[in-house]
Design a protein around this nucleic acid. Sequence first.
DNA 1: GTGGAGGCATTAA
DNA 2: ATTAATGCCTCCA
Length: 106
Amino acid sequence: MTSAMAPAEQRERIWRVVHGIPSGKVASYGQIAQLAGLPRAARLVGRVLSQLPEGSKLPWHRVVNSQGRISFPFGSEPYREQRERLLAEGVVFSGQRVARACFNWD
DNA sequence: GTGGAGGCATTAA
DNA sequence: ATTAATGCCTCCA
């Protein structure tokens, strides 16, 4: 329990930060990690989002890598879903990349 | 209960 | 575009 509690706390913090991303905007994993108080835990964010429960209502699709690109393989199922969700929120895609204007968080 | 190795939805040069 | 480095997590012996 104790050894599994530390990640749980971080997870909660990450959820909170991700949930705070406004619609139509995106943030990078590193950014999220930093805002969550985990300066170098970008990978942790990715891991946490990958282990999200169903119907968590968390805007995980607003999280992309530092290059503004979706971290899933192009054409993949999850890739499409994320792209669709972002487009539905008004996020502008410049090809495979997200418009830099959506990175108003940095 | 402890130690060691591998893997990753990353980031930066 | 590709490669190298980093930090954290999970699993097995």
